[in-house]
């Protein structure tokens, strides 16, 4: 299976698979005009990975995602939830800036209806 690599733009995230860890990262902004079309190749890539029964680790470090992207990510998580329910290995980490409570809430709401193993991790917290 080919690796996943979608470069970032001013309004779409860098999506890639870290070849060392196998983690699929989503980094940056996520407010494309047509999120469904933007996420389509990512969905297809996930389908391929599920067909190979491989473990899937997702990490999100998003500055912002619009409602259209939220809906597309819910579709992606629903696909992974079904895989998880059938015994597939799936985990999700949601990183958020510690001073942006709204992005923590976004992660909580996004994952609310799923049983996927998840971790919400603050970044840049002052100690």
């Amino acid at each position: 299976m080919s690796s996943l690599e979608i470069p970032a733009t001013d309004y779409t995230p860098h999506v890639f698979e870290d070849s060392k860890t196998g983690v699929v990262w989503f980094k940056g902004e996520a407010y494309p005009e047509n999120a469904s079309a933007y996420f389509q190749p990512i969905m297809e890539w996930m389908h391929s990975r599920i067909a190979e029964a491989r473990p899937i680790k997702l990490a999100f470090s998003l500055d912002y995602l619009n409602t259209s992207s939220t809906k597309a990510l819910l579709d992606l998580l629903a696909l992974l939830e079904a895989y998880h329910q059938k015994g597939g290995s799936v985990s999700v980490i949601w990183y958020y800036q510690a001073d942006l409570e709204v992005m923590k809430e976004t992660g909580e709401e996004l994952l609310h209806d799923f049983s996927l193993p998840r971790l919400l991790e603050p970044l840049g917290r002052l100690t």
Binding site: Y11, E29, Y31, P32, Y64, N66, V102
Partner: peptide, 30 residues
Amino acid sequence: QEEIAAATSRLMAAISAPRQVGHLLKIIFV
């Protein structure tokens, strides 16, 4: 879409507000 992205960058540079408020403003604007 390109203009929205450029305007969002200009907006974030132009406002004087706490980070959380700036982020909420960005959400509403986009």
